[in-house]
Write a protein that binds this DNA or RNA. Sequence first.
DNA 1: GTAGATGCAAATCTTTTGCTCGCCC
DNA 2: GGGCGAGCAAAAGATTTGCATCTAC
Lengths: 146, 146
Amino acid sequence: MEAELLKKCTDAGIRITAQRALIIETLIVSDDHPDADLVYRRAVERDQSISLPTVYRTLNLLEDAGIIKKINMNDGKARFEPVRKDHDHLIDADNGHIHEFQNQELKKILDSIANEMGYEVIDHRIEIVGRKRGESNCDCIQIKVY
Amino acid sequence: MEAELLKKCTDAGIRITAQRALIIETLIVSDDHPDADLVYRRAVERDQSISLPTVYRTLNLLEDAGIIKKINMNDGKARFEPVRKDHDHLIDADNGHIHEFQNQELKKILDSIANEMGYEVIDHRIEIVGRKRGESNCDCIQIKVY
DNA sequence: GTAGATGCAAATCTTTTGCTCGCCC
DNA sequence: GGGCGAGCAAAAGATTTGCATCTAC
């Protein structure tokens, strides 16, 4: 996995430095969806000298090259993940946990929608916000009304 | 439309002030998807005395009440629109134009996906990034590779 | 050797907050 | 009248940038 990503980088003309390799490895090891600051905090544990601006610069670089993907939780921070098999996210409204899923039917629908509008799909962002069935949301203090 | 939104506000216990009414009207008049600063700049044309913090406070208030919706273009700024009929967005990759669409089939799929995972859908965010068919993307300078 | 990358510090941009004054009900 | 809202200024948080130094190729 890591070698694969590093190859993608060199193929894209991205120079591999110690910092970039560490950031890439950090992303691979992370099975959640860290924001830039969290990537930095995880990376700095392994290399004290890495800096936050470098993390930002590297994440932007990798995103522009299509090697990682920026995802958005509407929490004001950009989060990142390596581009893997196509998948989308279901976010648990109560605890913020992120579940991943894949659905071919969904992709077909997107294609046909875009097609009807005269477009072809080149990317998409899909997030389902959901609540576990069976858990009532009325017996607890709830600020936001969905 | 405006009276309708104002009613939603009073129903939600939101006091209607001159500033809030102006912000709501600004949102209704806007057929694009303005960010907070743009809402502010549009509103200030009509009332010199309105302030940016008030715009932010009002937008958050309206969003928490479910009267407007925050949408995200991955450009680092939150954008807003009144909650209208359910719809999603297709973003033109070349010029950033936002098209809206509705598709029942899509909603059914989301329901069944969530259902399979033991969840029920309480919200969703869907954006298709597309390119107009027939327009080549190879004959022009292109920085981002999608 | 040289173009490009890094670290540091500071700037920038978006959004939020403390406080005082003013206005809606 | 009293509480809630507004404006101002400043803080806070996320992200970017200028510049001198260092490094991958």
